[in-house]
Amino acid sequence: MQASRPPSPWRLFLFFARISAVTLGGGYVLVPVIARGLERKGWMDEKEFFSLFGAAQSLPGPIGLNAALFAGRALSGLPGLLASALGVLVPPFAAILLVSGVIGVVAAQKQARAFLDGAFAVVPGLVAALLWRMTRTRAWNPGRVALALAAAAAMILAPAWAPAIFFAAAAVGWFVESPGTKA
């Protein structure tokens, strides 16, 4: 918005498509790449991007996608939002459809199997690291501790109910938090 000439939806599409096409590792890798890219283009400085990103995290959705949606809208309104969404979605979708035909063949190879097993082994480690970082940076109080542990226990015991438990925890949290809460 503060940019004198907002980028066209087409340029936003290309910008996000290029990032999405070459970035492995998902949202936590995409987000810093997007932040640097927007700044380099002179469309948005990092500080503004990360304040949008904070808001983007309070809506559901893959983090990389949400970051693109919010940045696209801030720069070029509704067409910008839709162009950014398509930019994030199209390249990986196309890549996956290309490889999906050969997954069975590849997974049956012993070496490919070993590589995929190794790549998969880090998943719980990476998620645990996210959990750790969130645990360390949150301002805890007894109510938050109790609610977070209760939500975790309930979801582990009844994973099929996780969506309902998530919204229940958010509703309880809203009433437990005082109106002047600092994040």
């Binding site: 939500a151 309930a154 998530f166 938090e177 809460t181």
Partner: peptide, 18 residues
Amino acid sequence: GNRFREALRSGTFGLLAM
């Protein structure tokens, strides 16, 4: 917005733990 974000955090903690 802070209150809203904080309210979501306990549930997010649960999702990550799960």
